[in-house]
Amino acid sequence: MQRGKVKWFNNEKGYGFIEVEGGSDVFVHFTAIQGEGFKTLEEGQEVSFEIVQGNRGPQAANVVKL
Rank of each mutant, 00 (worst) to 15 (best):
residue 30 F to G: 06
residue 58 P to D: 09
residue 27 F to K: 04
residue 9 F to M: 03
residue 57 G to F: 03
residue 36 E to P: 11
residue 28 V to I: 08
residue 11 N to Q: 04
residue 21 E to T: 14
residue 49 F to I: 05
residue 65 K to F: 06
residue 19 E to P: 02
residue 40 T to P: 03
residue 10 N to E: 06
residue 39 K to E: 05
residue 53 Q to N: 13
residue 17 F to W: 06
residue 64 V to E: 12
residue 41 L to H: 01
residue 40 T to L: 06
residue 57 G to A: 04
residue 13 K to Q: 07
residue 33 I to L: 06
residue 17 F to P: 00
residue 41 L to T: 02
residue 24 S to P: 14
residue 57 G to Q: 05
residue 9 F to K: 02
residue 44 G to I: 01
residue 55 N to Q: 09
residue 58 P to C: 06
residue 43 E to K: 15
residue 56 R to C: 06
residue 32 A to T: 05
residue 11 N to R: 11
residue 11 N to C: 08
residue 23 G to T: 13
residue 53 Q to S: 10
residue 31 T to F: 02
residue 16 G to L: 00
residue 55 N to L: 09
residue 13 K to F: 05
residue 2 Q to S: 09
residue 38 F to M: 06
residue 25 D to Q: 07
residue 3 R to L: 13
residue 27 F to N: 02
residue 16 G to Q: 00
residue 25 D to E: 06
residue 12 E to Y: 14
residue 46 E to C: 08
residue 54 G to W: 04
residue 32 A to K: 08
residue 13 K to Y: 10
residue 32 A to N: 08
residue 44 G to T: 06
residue 54 G to P: 02
residue 45 Q to F: 06
residue 53 Q to L: 10
residue 37 G to R: 06
residue 40 T to G: 08
residue 61 A to G: 10
residue 64 V to N: 11
residue 45 Q to Y: 07
residue 42 E to C: 11
residue 26 V to Y: 07
residue 54 G to Q: 09
residue 11 N to H: 10
residue 15 Y to Q: 03
residue 13 K to N: 05
residue 42 E to G: 13
residue 22 G to R: 12
residue 60 A to S: 04
residue 4 G to P: 01
residue 35 G to R: 05
residue 18 I to R: 00
residue 16 G to I: 00
residue 22 G to K: 08
residue 48 S to M: 15
residue 59 Q to L: 14
residue 49 F to K: 00
residue 29 H to M: 03
residue 40 T to D: 05
residue 32 A to C: 06
residue 51 I to M: 14
residue 38 F to G: 08
residue 62 N to S: 15
residue 29 H to K: 03
residue 52 V to E: 12
residue 66 L to S: 11
residue 42 E to V: 12
residue 15 Y to E: 03
residue 21 E to M: 08
residue 7 K to M: 07
residue 10 N to R: 10
residue 45 Q to E: 12
residue 38 F to A: 05
residue 17 F to Y: 03
residue 37 G to S: 07
residue 65 K to P: 15
residue 31 T to Q: 04
residue 11 N to L: 12
residue 50 E to H: 07
residue 45 Q to W: 10
residue 18 I to S: 00
residue 4 G to E: 01
residue 44 G to D: 14
residue 11 N to M: 09
residue 24 S to I: 09
residue 58 P to E: 11
residue 13 K to S: 08
residue 54 G to C: 11
residue 60 A to N: 00
residue 19 E to A: 15
residue 24 S to Q: 12
residue 43 E to M: 14
residue 31 T to K: 07
residue 19 E to V: 13
residue 26 V to Q: 04
residue 50 E to G: 10
residue 64 V to S: 11
residue 4 G to A: 05
residue 30 F to L: 05
residue 24 S to E: 14
residue 44 G to W: 05
residue 65 K to E: 10
residue 19 E to I: 11
residue 59 Q to S: 12
residue 56 R to E: 07
residue 44 G to A: 08
residue 48 S to A: 13
residue 50 E to Y: 13
residue 41 L to M: 12
residue 10 N to L: 07
residue 3 R to Q: 11
residue 28 V to M: 04
residue 58 P to I: 08
residue 14 G to S: 05
residue 23 G to N: 07
residue 41 L to Q: 01
residue 26 V to K: 03
residue 64 V to F: 14
residue 46 E to K: 12
residue 4 G to R: 01
residue 45 Q to G: 15
residue 5 K to G: 03
residue 2 Q to N: 10
residue 22 G to L: 11
residue 18 I to E: 00
residue 22 G to N: 15
residue 39 K to S: 07
residue 63 V to C: 13
residue 53 Q to Y: 08
residue 9 F to Q: 00
residue 34 Q to A: 11
residue 19 E to M: 13
residue 39 K to C: 06
residue 27 F to T: 03
residue 1 M to E: 13
residue 48 S to N: 05
residue 58 P to N: 12
residue 30 F to R: 14
residue 38 F to W: 15
residue 47 V to A: 03
residue 30 F to E: 07
residue 28 V to K: 00
residue 49 F to V: 06
residue 34 Q to R: 13
residue 52 V to R: 13
residue 65 K to A: 13
residue 57 G to L: 04
residue 43 E to H: 15
residue 36 E to D: 11
residue 55 N to V: 13
